[in-house]
Design a binder for these strands. Structure first.
Lengths: 337, 337
DNA sequence: GCTGTAAATGTAAGTGCTTACAGCTCCTAT
DNA sequence: ATAGGAGCTGTAAGCACTTACATTTACAGC
């Protein structure tokens, strides 16, 4: 059986209260006593029981990290940054890969709350198809702990949002192609998420502002797994085969854009002369393809940093802004003119 | 303040013991009593306090998931599969991205054990540079909970290993190039991990068995981040510029192999005529490049499944084999003849 | 009607920590 | 000499559960 605070107090010749004070860094312990206790702790390699501690402290310094799929290129990075930042501040992460089904997400949240996490971080925006319901259970969760949203916005007490202006970024990405003389621009997206709808609006607004409002045939939703490049390529091939012609592609993530590159290569199209392509997230994939992919950097590392800092301050009782919005940046590489 | 088991027992008109029994699914509760208690729990949306529970139960059905970097393409997939499989069996995952420093890994393990996880899963093999020390603290951890290693082998009580025969896979990958008439094969690797050394041995053995034992100039260690393709390309360029000529590349992961593809493209080399390339892990990158990458599938999903099944049985007291070894498979695509 | 047994439920003793409050020691100011 | 206070330490009461053991209840068998 593991050592308890009683064992340590006995070995150090003090009371458990004193050991506890040393553990919690109280300043009302004589230096010599502290030394003695610390040396005993060191010697016997004692670590306090986190659950007993949680009962006293009402916190286990653990947060729930929810995402649909932590193996997704983008979400994996988000999870990684968050975990690092949290750990650096003394918090651990309970990872939950909820999948995309609303009910699974909901039951996961209940489960995690029962583990008495100090906060809930929802990584990747929530899904618009059920936005009412999703918002409902976020609101319920927020009654218990602060809820942090990454890449989503929901105005609700105790919910804090950190996001990137995906509308503006996609507007800019689309506009840059239009300015280069391309007016038949395929918009490929993959998720009905909060940020997904923002991106779509950005694309539409850009098309509209250049009087290219009849963009309807160019908007296409890919419903498969974005890690299966081949099926993305087939998806685009289908679009082309059905008679839609396009000389530009704006995609909601890099995987879709890579699918477009492969499509071009299979059809002997030159990039960017015959087809210009812009991805999103500025992931490592941008460097894996040839030519290298122009992509929108949506400031993931900056956002995750901000999110955790906000959380820490909220937990320490500070009043914090409910929303922090950053600006994305178009990183030009070789798939655009 | 949140409801406690006392509140529920009062409202249901039973003792706290009965509520606790209902909560824990004991079968010695009359059906009608159970109904009554459950309806009260439902009505007041009560969730038991995890700290208190952890103290009584000595298990919160949580396991620690340690990996160096969950944003790595391969590790992210491993983490994802493990989390899914664990959750499906009622266990949650405490994610720890330890980085590659031994001391950080060690302190992380101590921390996680104090949270009273039911087991520790070390994802991705441990690092040979400090294998003695790393094994030491694995052994210590195994005194408290079963320790599961993915992609590593360490013979120690209460340590269970699930791995793929990376030696044989790399032997086969290398041999396939030799049989195609290539005898100057660059071996690129990136980590001094357990599986890394096995792969290296596989390469060397293949070279030796074809009497190409003077392979020394062809073995190269890349010490950077493998998500930075450009620096991998530069690394290979350096090797070539220093006078090593090679017509084949066997890499310890797909990122390195993609770097080789980009190197070939920048130098106008035809693939596979001038340079044949084999990656490892059979990740989505194999489909992102052109031509598509031949790669070794090391059966990640199968392994993670096996690992969790083994863990569950160990936790329920069954005697289980200390090591489960699977066979990898070379997936031929267009970067090899 | 009584006993014996099994099923259902309650009582109370942990579980390992935190912390309010009490107590002790030693010194200073009167 | 003595009250009072500062500095340090100990005692004990939580915290919200689990569970061994005790008790009650229900009912079959005689």
């Amino acid at each position: 059986m593991a050592l308890t605070i009683y064992d340590i107090s006995k070995k150090a010749g003090v009371s458990i209260a004193t050991v506890s004070r040393v553990l919690n860094g109280s300043d009302s312990v004589k230096a010599s006593t502290r030394e003695k206790v610390l040396s005993v702790i060191e010697k016997y390699d004692y670590t306090p029981n986190a659950y007993a501690r949680g009962m006293g402290l009402h916190s286990l310094r653990t947060v729930g990290l929810l995402c649909a799929d932590s193996s997704d290129l983008y979400l994996a990075k988000a999870v990684y940054y968050l975990e690092q930042e949290l750990h650096a501040n003394g918090y651990e992460s309970l990872l939950c890969c909820t999948g995309y089904e609303l009910e699974d997400r909901q039951s996961y949240i209940k489960l995690i709350l029962s583990k008495k996490v100090d906060s809930l971080i929802l990584v990747g925006s929530h899904y618009v198809s059920n936005i009412e319901k999703e918002n409902n259970y976020i609101r319920d969760a927020a009654k218990q702990v602060p809820v942090m949203l990454l890449n989503a916005s929901y105005n609700c007490p105790n919910v804090y949002c950190t996001l990137c202006n995906d509308y503006a970024s996609t507007f800019e990405a689309t506009s840059s192609l239009i300015r280069a003389g391309i007016d038949d621009i395929l918009y490929l997206y993959d998720s009905n998420s909060y940020s997904g709808t923002k991106k779509l609006s950005g694309y539409k607004a850009a098309m509209k502002s250049y009087k290219l409002a009849d963009y309807a045939p160019f908007v296409n939703f890919y419903g498969g797994r974005t890690d299966q490049i081949e099926s993305i390529t087939n998806f685009i091939q289908d679009i082309a085969d059905r008679g839609t012609t396009f000389h530009g592609v704006v995609a909601s993530d890099d995987q879709l854009a890579v699918g477009a590159i492969k499509y071009a290569q299979k059809n002997g199209l030159r990039i960017p002369e015959d087809l210009s392509i812009i991805g999103y997230n500025n992931s490592m994939l941008t460097a894996c393809c040839q030519p290298e992919l122009t992509s929108v950097d949506n400031r993931l590392e900056t956002m995750t940093h901000q999110l955790v800092q906000t959380l820490l301050r909220v937990l320490s009782g500070e009043e914090m802004p409910a929303e922090s919005v950053f600006s994305g940046k178009l990183i030009k590489r070789s798939t655009t003119p």
